[in-house]
Design a protein around this nucleic acid. Structure first.
Lengths: 349, 349
DNA sequence: CGGAGCGTGTAGAACGTTCTCCATCCGAAC
DNA sequence: GTTCGGATGGAGAACGTTCTACACGCTCCG
């Protein structure tokens, strides 16, 4: 009797209502919406005003049953990595004036969790997917891409079934090593993600990075000084790596990391050990996120143009979704070194 | 003729396939899935194995046409605010083992954009919505909540149509003022968001914060020293506010802000003006995000328990979605002050 | 022995779109 | 004045679920 929660029954305006109001068939309304062939300007006009007058909004689920949902799904592992925010901004900007909506699935670092999230996105009939450095096995991503247009950001492994947008991580690592060597460093360590070999990805960002690092060290005749330490790209991951590297007897004079977040964890570790940056240790991040430029931080980092990567990925994806391109493509961005106050000449011991 | 993109036709396993495989009707399968009344254990068993054998996954769009989509939509203005990440973590954790999926709509700061995003979420048949400090007019939120279960985080305005989770921002402001006064400060400024009065929200977080600040200043007999400066909760917003406040002749000895992000902007401004923190100016953030505790930052901040807020919101929302509660409720969390190195006794000039 | 009542399962109509035909109209060409 | 063909609009069948209504068989009770 009371007007309780059963009052959640505000009937939606449907295509049928619009059709009736405009005095045409539902098929006609549908055609106008999708601006398909076979509609006169006069009818379009009538239908459009009817839609406006009734405040019609298409029902995405119903659309999903037959056609598109006009929704793009983005998978990322964690929201805290500011680099992803840059990528997202790029995606949003590109899709701003289109009729597509972006929905984000934040999955965490676990491969299972990520796989579940990808499946969720597919089940919800996303028209296209952007996967940012997915941790799921490659086979699974390929299977998904088979059914839904997909752009993979980060992994260098190309495929004829999905598009890719990557940063030339190996080049980036080279830039950093060159910079540090020029400052006089020889003992340069790399802290990078472990990179799940199990997933059968041959060239994840961290593998490319390590590769570039090792090649650069070699080029400078410092192959003997090279060492790679694995850590998760998070504050805690960096902290643990920092403690391990900096508390040993042969501590490096410079550390290069694969992510700014991790660099900040190392910063914290250094602080706890009474070491100051860059006096005792030089530190270089990757991604050039907003935190890197923050006043108290001033982290030397490698800029990856996350914004552009996101925008590019979105553009590529829409081309595929709308069937304007039928073969896969890869885009590689060139990184740039941004020198700030966290690097300097090594202390003479 | 070539196996091109038309090979995107991997037929989905549908409920009909499962039904046939198990030798029952589709209605039966549907019942088992929703574990509705009227299914024998024997049949459940058969259906479940059939689903497993065929690798069946329900089609969310189809579900959305009649029943639920098992999807929760979260609206936030920007991904960069680490406080939101905490909230998201809480939501995720709470929903971890349920069959609900969380999808995030990142809308930006504009009211229009946010309204559009909310509509997108509704059109995609989300079962429930979590709106984090929405900038859309209150009326619009109420209308949405009328049709879809909704939890609003942040705004103190209660409503009988949606649930709320808030932080006692006024209390938090009081804690900070008390702390600063105890250190010897008298000239304490507040930097907070403008708070769109147009939206008809009576008590946004920033209004509550300003309120608590003014009352606390008054309590200490410092009403004459109180001043509120408006700024967007972003790095740039804080930077601008910082420059304005700190370059004037009567610069405050302490600044309290409504968000850590903004505090970091002020930090940058101070740095540019050659002022050091806390020697020249004490600085206090709000949210106690991960950045606040970062080694080079060490920002005194107010902890808002974002994680708990998120988890609580999710729990409340699911109760509503599943119809286990039919009246609205509000939850208020008590903030806690976390003192770090960005506050100290004022310099005697 | 004739229901009533319960437990179990099914038929089939929604739900709001898209999209493939098909019907009609109109003008031009023969 | 017939035929052809293009342009325009509509009928109606999908799409994969949910859920109401009902059918069937059993047991229990009077």
């Amino acid at each position: 009797m009371t007007p309780d929660s059963s009052s959640r029954n505000t009937k939606r305006v449907t295509i049928t209502d619009v059709a009736r109001h405009a005095g045409v068939s539902t098929a006609a309304v549908s055609k106008v919406m999708r601006n398909a062939y076979g509609t006169s300007p006069a009818m379009q006009e009538r239908v459009r005003t009817a839609m406006a007058e009734l405040g019609y909004r298409p029902h995405a689920a119903a659309r999903g049953m037959r056609g598109r949902t006009y929704t793009i799904g983005v998978l990322l592992d964690n929201v805290r990595n500011a680099f992803f925010a840059d990528v997202l901004d790029g995606i949003h900007e590109e899709l701003q004036d289109s009729e597509y909506t972006v929905l984000i699935g934040a999955a965490g670092f676990g491969a299972d969790e990520q796989a579940r999230t990808i499946r969720s996105l597919v089940d919800r009939q996303m028209d296209g997917l952007v996967l940012i450095a997915p941790g799921t096995p490659r086979a699974e991503v390929l299977a998904t891409a088979q059914a839904t247009p997909t752009v993979v950001i980060g992994h260098h492994d190309a495929s004829d079934v999905h598009d890719s947008v990557v940063d030339a991580d190996d080049v980036g690592a080279g830039l950093v090593v060159d910079h540090l060597v020029a400052l006089g460093h020889r003992d340069i360590a790399l802290v990078a993600a472990a990179g799940s070999r199990t997933g059968r990805w041959q060239r994840t960002p961290e593998i490319a990075l390590a590769d570039g690092y090792l090649r650069a060290m070699d080029r400078h005749g410092l192959a003997g000084h090279a060492r790679v330490h694995h850590a998760a790209y998070s504050d805690d991951g960096g902290h643990a790596a920092g403690l391990a590297l900096l508390s040993g007897p042969d501590r490096p004079t410079a550390i290069l990391t694969g992510a700014d977040v991790a660099a900040l964890g190392i910063y914290r570790a250094a602080d706890e050990l009474g070491l100051s940056i860059p006096a005792d240790v030089s530190l270089v991040g990757y991604n050039n996120t907003a935190i890197a430029s923050l006043a108290p931080v001033q982290l030397t980092s490698v800029d990856q143009a996350g914004h552009t990567m996101g925008a590019t990925a979105a553009r590529m994806l829409i081309e595929r979704v709308e069937g304007r391109r039928d073969r896969s493509m890869q885009t590689t961005m060139t990184p740039r070194l941004v020198v700030r106050r966290s690097t300097g000449a090594p202390h003479v011991r």
